[in-house]
Design a protein around this nucleic acid. Structure first.
Lengths: 130, 130
DNA sequence: CTTGACCCTCCAGTGACTGGAAGCCCTATG
DNA sequence: CATAGGGCTTCCAGTCACTGGAGGGTCAAG
């Protein structure tokens, strides 16, 4: 398969796939014309990466996950630990965003949104007081 | 005030304050020795920026907000629109993260986390099937 | 006069791509 | 056989909002 094929099948942009090769996540073969030639195993890895990235794992996490995936002697505890740490970060971020949302939502609702200049949003930003 | 003072009072790192000057958000004076000299109005702006950033506004949004803040003829609708658009983005991101969290949480719970290699997290990443 | 805490500028790196330029390769058509 | 298009290649630069560090000037206290 050429890069266009795997891009379509994996759902990843060709640019991203080249980038993943650059940073050593995949190692496709090369045809004599210089084109990358992808085996099924490469496609498989890319799909794996796509799903891991969609769950918000960092590239370095993905590298580790791939290594664990390919190591048949892994302990599932290692995978679970990684996933749990990541889950904790996500939950943290959700809390942060929710707090932003709550404040912002309150401000938005308290603003008339007409053509007068008075604006509680700006007042709040200026003073830190509601 | 020198940069250290405003850093402490605004809660922003000195590096960040220099960066904000670089990109034209603030324009502190200079002493003869080359040190930045901050007026109260600069400190005020920095505090404003700190609060806007804490609400997740981008730097460009902050630039606009500052301009609106300093424009006494602004329409509060302009501020509200900006804030509402930002709120929508935050809510979007929360939904994305919650979806990640749900999937991930399910996977984590289904993984034994012992020293055996069997791991539903990896199986899911590999196949996209639970 | 020295020490230590400030301050300065400039450069490079972060994460994970993304866009674009310049140019080679392959296939199909006139 | 020439050409047009689409796909492939590499390399460089830009994104966002800082952050770290090198290398060096300035200031107040002892």
């Amino acid at each position: 398969m050429n890069i266009g094929d795997v891009a379509q099948r994996s759902g990843l942009p060709a640019k991203t796939i080249r980038y993943y090769e650059d940073i050593g996540l995949i190692k496709p073969m090369r045809d004599t014309n210089g084109y990358r030639r992808f085996r099924d195993s490469d496609l498989h890895k890319l799909a794996f990466l796509g799903r891991a990235r969609a769950l918000g794992f960092t590239i370095e996490d993905c590298r580790t996950l791939l290594a664990l995936y390919e190591d048949n002697t892994r302990a599932s505890a290692d995978v679970k630990d990684l996933a749990q740490a990541h889950l904790a970060k996500i939950e943290d971020k959700i809390l942060q965003l929710q707090s932003m949302r709550d404040t912002l939502s309150e401000l938005v609702h308290s603003c008339a949104g007409d053509n007068r200049p008075d604006c509680p949003i700006l007042s709040d930003l200026a003073t830190g007081q509601h």
